[in-house]
Amino acid sequence: MKNFHINHREKDQIDILEIRGELDAHTASKLEDSLKTLIDKKKRNIIVNCNDLEYIASAGLGVFMAYIEDVRGLGGDIKLTNMNEKVYNVFDLLGFPTLYDILDDEIEAIKQFQHPDKQDSPS
């Protein structure tokens, strides 16, 4: 698969998917498989680190749209972190930031999973 890779690691019972390259209708199935595998194992605290994500099309956004409710249904969340401005703008165009937790970095996301009560309330 051209130019899209996923690395999975675990930290403090949180599953972190580092996604790299270009996420489009061709590569989205790879992300979908990774998320499905985690959900099937009832993993519910998931971070998708987008630090090396260079491009996203709506097929990539669609994967998040299709699975976020399942994860939230398990009492967890999918938090997105480390997006570059170009990628963030695509999420923003569709109104994702009001419905999904998009954070500056992974540490912030880990903190929120560990201490959800300490989350800043939206102003």
Partner: peptide
């Protein structure tokens, strides 16, 4: 988007 997310619908 909200409706789509709730219905697990993409596209």
């Amino acid at each position: 988007l909200y409706k789509q997310m709730k219905n697990r619908k993409r596209g």
